[in-house]
């Protein structure tokens, strides 16, 4: 009996440790907030907060698509190029014809189509996602460069500028669209059979197939969604930036992947939530904001971001291992 008591006690302790692990990814952004508030009074202004949230929203929209892809144990490296391509196509239509609706519609359809091609190659021809989307990254960027031929489109009409730079009441449009994406993705992952099948697929491809799922279809759709939301994020970015050139969106895929993984979604599939992408997006945006406010040299900023990503992810893995160890010990046969 004494032994039993000891076991129960240990379990309570373990619950605390696991709780701490779960809280870990909130602690870092909170800590950053506090330090900034102390060191830099201008950080605490309303306008800075809105600014951070607006920037995070665009990153979050990209990270939301990337979350689905990473949950299937995949990766989408092509979204930066999709952003550049679709934004430039839309930009050209808006500038030349002044037709906002067709421009936006075309951008979204093109983004989805490129995603579909990615998904088809990955799921049907079985080329690894890394290789496929890396190839697509170069291909699409090349297409954009060929299309733009060094041109820059700038000075968009006011109604086009509204989607990225405008606001309804006090809330900027990117935040509104970001919240919409969050609601849709939250519902998709938690309350739809399609979302559930993404978790199954990421966890065990074979078992998912045996259980009657069309795994190729699921995988293809996931990449199509990633391409689609990338083009939406790209439009918001273009609208706010007010200028389109061939290099638009370069490297965005890395920020999106970092946001997903920083938020705590496992790189090995099937573990993670859409909420994680919010935490990750805000963390990265906060970090960039903080370095600017603190006057850290822009030469050193990428180094610090890289360092923190490595440290946070290594820390998460260590906790995860600890958690698994505890669970295995507690396992009752």
């Amino acid at each position: 009996m004494v032994k039993d008591k000891g076991l129960v006690h240990l379990r309570k302790q373990n619950v605390k440790i696991i709780g701490l692990f779960k809280a870990g990814r909130f602690i870092f952004p909170l800590l950053l907030l506090i330090i900034l508030a102390i060191l830099q009074p201008s950080f605490l202004t309303m306008s800075n907060f809105v600014n951070i949230l607006r920037q995070s929203s665009i990153l979050f929209i990209l990270a939301a698509g990337q979350t689905l892809v990473i949950l299937t144990e995949g990766i989408d490296l092509s979204i930066g190029s999709i952003i550049g391509f679709t934004a430039c196509m839309a930009g050209s239509l808006v500038i030349n014809d002044g037709n906002n609706v067709i421009g936006i519609f075309l951008a979204i359809i093109l983004g989805m189509l490129i995603g579909l091609i990615n998904g088809y190659i990955i799921s049907h021809i079985r080329v690894p996602a890394f290789v496929t989307t890396y190839g697509m990254q170069i291909l699409i960027r090349g297409l954009t460069i060929a299309f733009m031929k060094g041109d820059v489109f700038w000075g968009f009409n006011d109604s086009f500028r509204f989607i990225g730079a405008g606001s309804i009441g006090a809330i900027p449009m990117p935040i509104i669209i970001g919240v919409l994406v969050l609601i849709i993705f939250y519902f998709l992952l938690n309350y739809s059979t399609f979302g559930q099948s993404i978790y199954y697929l990421g966890n065990n491809r074979n078992a998912t197939k045996v259980s009657g799922f069309k795994i190729r279809k699921i995988e293809t759709i996931v990449y199509a969604i990633s391409g689609l939301v990338a083009s939406i994020g790209g439009l918001l970015y273009l609208s706010r930036l007010n200028s389109a050139e061939a290099s638009l969106g370069t490297g965005f895929e890395m920020d999106a992947i970092a946001a997903v993984v920083l938020g705590g979604t496992s790189f090995f599939g099937a573990e993670g939530k859409i909420e994680n992408a919010i935490i990750g997006s805000i963390t990265i945006t906060l970090l960039k904001n903080a370095m600017n406010l603190l006057g850290i040299s822009s030469y050193w900023q990428p180094f610090i971001i890289g360092l923190l990503i490595v440290v946070i992810i290594a820390n998460e893995r260590a906790f995860e291992k600890l958690r698994n160890l505890i669970l295995v010990r507690e396992r009752v046969n």
Partner: peptide, 16 residues
């Protein structure tokens, strides 16, 4: 290999 999603809960596996 073919039966379970090891990383998911009992409930999610049964309903699969």
């Amino acid at each position: 290999l073919h039966g379970l999603c090891l990383g998911l809960s009992i409930q999610k596996n049964i309903i699969m």
